[in-house]
Simulated assay, not measured.
Amino acid sequence: MTRDELARTVPAPATAGAGARPVVARTKGVRKVYRSTIAVDGVDLEVPEGAVVGMLGPNGSGKTTTIRMLLGLVRPTEGEVELFGQPMPESAESTLPHVGALVEGPGFHPFLSGRDNLLRFAAAEPLLPSAKITAAVTNALELVGLTAAADRRYRGYSLGMKQRLGLAAALLVPRKLVVLDEPTNGLDPAGTREVRRIIAELHARGTTVLVSSHLLSEVEATCTHVIVLSKGTVVAQGELSELLEAGNPTLEVVTPDATQAVEALRANRIPARLAPDGILVDLVTTPAPRVIETLVQAGVSVYEARRKRTGLEDLFARLTETQSDDLPTDLHLNDVDHVGVA
């Protein structure tokens, strides 16, 4: 297939149900076995178009294997993989030119400069005309902050600089989907902020981004959706904001009368406990207005009341640290799985 033919064959996201976002990537019942080791077991996931999706999981949870199957780098033992609605890896030739990926660290020639390495990558880009190669390389180097080091040999690059060059290679041409496996590995705080900025710019352009990361704070700051894997299976996925709301809803009340407040609420069978600046109230069975009404009637001074959302770190721990196949009794898969994908 020629470059012109590929440029005209821009893949469209797979259709979804009425009112649902189109899906850029999807797996159905995917299983991958290496000899006696089950790396991925029955994974069903969807990557919505235009989303920034964080893929989370402990080491060995199957994140990189799942990404490799999405990109057609390995075949699943069982199940189906789709990219832009096309089966993978059978459609790799037509779909992968529209994907930029940095998986398991970049691979470059150590004795070439960063610029020369990118020029070699750019020459192999099906969607990049020869006349635009030099400009594309220059723009990519500037985007990741490597212009000053562009003509240094790759073997002299730090780990963070190597990560930046790999990211530049993934962004040589506009992509429909960008896949980043641990993109901030080896980066200092300034480099991490740059990656966050790049992801935000891609999101603003409508590019779908799939990020595998162990930095929960970065995922919470950059991602619109998350997929959580544990022991080779998906334990939760959906819009980040809705998943964080799926934990126990809690009202944080700032009051100087904390002890009196707890006693008043418990007397009305409303679970509450002391907190540094006041109290925390369980809203599972009681709406927030009823809590405030009870406190006011008891003569408690209420300075402030706000809904306290489950943090991503707490949610991640509750989903992945459970030893049995069941989730904690206060967080069920039926409550959080696939939330917000539509």
Rank of each mutant, 00 (worst) to 15 (best):
D4I: 14
T9I: 05
A12E: 15
A20S: 15
P22T: 12
V23S: 03
V23C: 06
K32P: 03
V33Q: 14
S36H: 15
T37G: 07
T37S: 15
G50R: 04
G54D: 06
G57H: 01
S61A: 15
I67P: 09
M69F: 05
L70F: 10
L71M: 06
L71Q: 03
G72L: 00
V74S: 15
V74N: 14
E80W: 00
L83Y: 06
L96Q: 04
V103R: 05
P106H: 04
F108V: 13
F111R: 14
F121E: 07
F121L: 11
K132L: 10
K132R: 14
I133G: 03
T138N: 11
G145V: 00
A148K: 14
A148E: 13
A148H: 13
R155D: 12
G156F: 06
Y157L: 11
G160A: 01
M161W: 06
K162I: 08
K162R: 15
Q163M: 10
R164Y: 03
G166C: 11
L172W: 02
P174E: 07
K176V: 12
G191F: 02
I199S: 09
L202C: 10
L202M: 04
V209R: 01
L215V: 13
L216D: 09
E218R: 08
E220N: 12
E220C: 01
V226H: 00
V228K: 12
L229V: 05
V235G: 00
Q237T: 00
G238P: 03
G238C: 04
L244C: 08
T250I: 14
E252K: 12
V262F: 08
E263I: 15
L265G: 08
A267M: 10
G278F: 07
I279P: 07
D282R: 12
T285L: 11
G299M: 04
E304I: 00
L319D: 07
L319K: 03
L319S: 03
E321Y: 06
E321W: 04
S324W: 04
D325S: 10
P328M: 06
D330R: 02
D337S: 10
V339H: 02
V341F: 05
